[in-house]
Design a protein around this nucleic acid. Structure first.
Lengths: 205, 205
DNA sequence: GCCGGGACCGAACGATCGTGCTTTTATGGC
DNA sequence: GCCATAAAAGCACGATCGTTCGGTCCCGGC
């Protein structure tokens, strides 16, 4: 990895942190340059436009998400254990572990971007975010469906509805943690998660 | 109501629309002036600072929310009917009715501001939003608790946990509608809502 | 040891930001 | 209809925005 890639990666790390806190609209090349100790033009040369910088940040975050949430969770045993692992890792991603003073001081960067970009006209940035979100929900639905075939959840359960509901739990947790600073947020999120599973428990008999 | 209040109100209406779409950070006095057909300085004179404009927008939105969601819903009969009315009106507020080409083309302004301001340091704007959100969740919890004493829901149900869960349903609906443009979003939200109630149904016997 | 190219910087651009000041125009009470 | 006052406009300010250009430094290949 040459000098260029190294700097580029460091810049993207810093940019990702800033975007998680202030969004794409709050990210400016000037403040990013200052935060990384570079000149505006020197930094700019790595991306050639702000839009390409934004796209690179999104890709960078997606890679991190796959590394620390998705791939490790998919190593857990099929069915309910894998679903629980996915939930726990996503919970950490949202707040406790990678939030605060971690890689994402502003919380889940995708959640933040979702509400920032949802009213934007179609474009490369919005499209990329939607694609990433689509992949994520599909993964959740697939993992849950695996739990159905494993006999952990009631047959006939709708995996898409489960992914929808679980995402609601995640969003509520993000909201309660970051805006409301509710110390019970994590406990409440776990309670909601257990309710979702209980509602899909295999019927007795 | 003098001329001043009249234009001020018209400006706030327009500002609220814009904020719902582009957030407080995306709202600029220049574009707001152009959208209302005024000069920057003429508009500025009504608020004397951008922060006061932002605070006024938040108050304006809170009044609208009380008018079209809260107050009408509280006229419904105590218990489950009142809770259902609250849910339906909040659903309309988020997307169908007041969204799109209505008063809030960018969807629920509070949801948008929640993710935009959650990482901001404490200040008048953030504090005001948190206060409004606190009031809202307290109302939901209280209305649900009324359902418990009415015998519509299982005794021992936790109203705060219910408010947390319902908020998750709302956030998931907002997300599915606005970012993902999921045509099934409303149906899924209703399904989630019914699940929340079913889990709190009075036990048989 | 020279040279080409990538990495980076400094300065500057036009545009737009929020915000003052001064002046003109419109309004409402008598 | 006059007149004090409120409302709106005009203009300018320093700062910052994304972006461009020309130059400087340093490192690897010949």
């Amino acid at each position: 990895m040459g000098k260029g890639d190294q700097t580029r990666r460091a810049v993207l790390d810093q940019a990702m942190r800033m975007v998680s806190a202030v969004g794409m609209r709050g990210l400016t090349i000037g403040t990013l340059a200052e935060a990384t100790g570079m000149s505006k033009s020197g930094l700019f040369g790595h991306f050639n436009s702000k839009e390409q910088l934004q796209l690179a940040v999104l890709d960078h975050a997606a890679e991190l998400f796959i590394d620390v949430v998705l791939r490790p969770a998919l190593k857990a045993p099929r069915g309910e254990p894998r679903l629980r692992e996915l939930f726990e890792r996503k919970l950490s991603w949202d707040g406790r572990y990678y939030g605060a003073d971690g890689a994402l001081p502003g919380g889940c960067i995708f959640t933040n971007l979702a509400t920032e970009l949802d009213d934007e006209p179609d474009g490369p940035l919005r499209d990329k975010l939607v694609q990433h979100e689509r992949d994520w929900h599909e993964t959740v639905a697939t993992v849950f469906a695996g739990g159905v075939t494993e006999g952990d959840f009631a047959p006939g359960s709708d995996p898409v509805q489960f992914a929808y509901d679980l995402h609601g739990v995640m969003l509520a947790h993000h909201y309660a943690t970051r805006l409301m600073r509710d110390p019970d947020a994590e406990r409440r999120a776990r309670a909601s998660f257990e309710s979702l599973l209980r509602a899909r428990a295999v019927p007795p008999g």
